[in-house]
C-alpha cells in the first residue's frame, strides 16, 4: 500500500469526549483523480460493481443471517439515498463511508438497480458445509 498518508477529519466526537475529532488515514488517488479515471473508461457494469459487495453482504447481497444488512431486494431509492448519505458522510458509520466515498451517482444508481432485482431469499443453504462439524454459525436464524 502506498504511504501517501493524509490525516483527514472524518467524524466529530467533540460533544462526547471534548477530544480532537476522530481521524482516519486516507490515501491513494484523490477524488479528482478518481473522477478522471471514471470519465476515461466506461462505467463498470452493475454486476461488476454489485459483486464487490458480496464478500460482506452475501452472494447477490442475499445474506440475511448476519448483522451486515442484506441488499437483495432492497428498495432502489432507499439504497441510493443511504449510499449517498454514506458517501457524503452525513452521519458516522462503521465502515460504509469509507466504502462509498469513491462512487459516482451513476455507479450508485446501477448498484441500486442491481440489488433491487435480486431475489430477497437467503442464498446460503443450511446444509452447505455439513461434512465439517457444524458450529455456532448455523445457529444464527432469521
Amino acid at each position: 500500500m502506498k504511504k501517501l498518508l493524509l490525516l483527514s477529519a472524518v467524524t466529530g466526537l467533540t460533544c462526547m469526549l471534548q477530544a480532537p475529532a476522530s481521524f482516519a488515514l486516507t490515501g491513494g488517488i484523490s477524488a479528482e483523480e478518481n473522477a478522471k479515471l471514471r470519465a476515461e473508461y466506461p462505467m463498470p457494469s452493475a454486476e461488476m460493481l454489485g459483486d464487490n459487495c458480496s464478500a460482506c453482504h452475501g452472494t447477490n447481497g442475499a445474506e440475511f443471517n448476519e448483522a451486515m444488512p442484506p441488499l437483495a431486494g432492497m428498495d432502489k431509492n432507499n439504497f441510493i439515498k443511504l449510499m449517498k448519505e454514506y458517501r457524503e458522510n452525513k452521519f458516522p458509520s462503521i465502515v460504509m463511508h469509507d466504502v462509498a466515498h469513491v462512487f459516482s451517482d451513476e455507479e450508485i444508481e446501477a448498484m441500486g438497480d442491481f440489488f433491487a432485482k435480486q431475489k430477497p431469499e437467503q442464498w446460503t443453504r443450511p446444509d452447505w458445509n455439513k461434512s465439517i462439524k457444524q458450529h455456532a454459525e448455523e445457529h444464527s436464524h432469521e
Binding site: 467524524t11 466526537l13 460533544c15 462526547m16 448483522a67 452521519f91 458516522p92 458509520s93 462503521i94 460504509m96
Partner: peptide, 11 residues
C-alpha cells in the same frame, strides 16, 4: 447526538 456518535444510526 449519541444515536449518531455511538453508531446506532448506521443500522
Amino acid at each position: 447526538e449519541l444515536h449518531k456518535q455511538a453508531l446506532c444510526m448506521t443500522c
